[in-house]
Simulated scan of single mutants.
Amino acid sequence: MSLPRSNYDPRRVCLNPFPVLNIGKHRRTIGIYLAGGLFALANWTFLDAAILSAHAHPPYDEPQLPAPVHVGFTDWVPGICSLLGMLIINLIDKDRVRGEEGFGDSGAVWRARLILFIGFALMAGGLAGSVTVLVLKYVLEEYAEQYTYYGYANVSQNVALMLSTIVLWISQSVGSEYEYNLSI
């Protein structure tokens, strides 16, 4: 067994600390804009697939046949679940989840954590549902690459929504650039 390093803190979880990113006093604003960009990218990719599906052409070698697959309601459900999860997660007061600010009611902290769990469960269910739709509807049927794009767009939408939620949660937990430190 080796001796611990001199700067070792037994309360740390990771052996190597995460790198410190110093992006200045506007880190909260940058995080919120980044989350908004990820949200827009997520919905843009899925709407692109839905519009492309609505205007899909039949295979070129058989022009009489209709397109084999379209984006349907089952493709929309995972994105709706992830969007609801994102809304639930970001509507919860962060201080209530931590139990700070002297809320006094321990039941309020428990309820906030339960609702936060429901939000994360909706997001995880949305991602799992999009992967399931991709595999069952597009991959197992062995459609052409132009049709499997619909399933990949669905999965990328849910991943980007999850990343957007994480970035927004972290950036809202950071102190505001308008806070002043008044000390004598």
Rank of each mutant, 00 (worst) to 15 (best):
S2P: 06
L3F: 00
P4L: 03
N7P: 02
Y8H: 03
P10M: 01
C14L: 14
L15I: 00
N16C: 03
P17I: 04
F18K: 07
P19T: 04
P19V: 09
P19L: 01
H26G: 15
I32T: 10
G37A: 15
L38F: 11
F39A: 15
A40T: 15
A40C: 01
L41W: 14
A42Q: 07
W44E: 07
F46I: 08
A49K: 08
A54P: 01
A54L: 09
D61Q: 09
E62I: 13
Q64I: 03
A67N: 14
A67Y: 11
V69T: 12
T74V: 15
D75V: 13
V77G: 09
C81A: 13
L83D: 09
L84W: 10
M86K: 04
I88Y: 04
I89H: 11
I89M: 09
I89W: 07
L91W: 07
K94T: 13
K94P: 09
D95H: 12
G99R: 08
G99M: 08
G99T: 05
E100R: 06
E100F: 13
G102A: 01
G102E: 10
F103H: 08
A108S: 02
A112E: 08
R113A: 00
L114I: 03
L116D: 09
I118T: 04
I118K: 00
A121C: 01
A121W: 02
M123Q: 14
A124T: 07
A124V: 06
G125A: 12
G126P: 04
G126M: 00
L127Q: 06
L127C: 07
G129P: 04
S130E: 00
S130P: 08
V131Y: 01
T132D: 07
T132H: 15
L134H: 02
V135M: 02
V135T: 12
V135D: 10
L136D: 13
K137G: 07
V139M: 09
E142K: 10
Y143M: 11
A144C: 01
E145N: 07
Q146K: 13
Y147G: 08
Y147H: 15
Y149A: 12
Y150G: 12
Y150W: 11
S156D: 00
Q157T: 09
L163M: 11
W169K: 12
W169P: 01
I170T: 08
Q172P: 00
V174S: 10
Y178T: 02
E179F: 10
E179N: 13
S183E: 12
S183P: 03
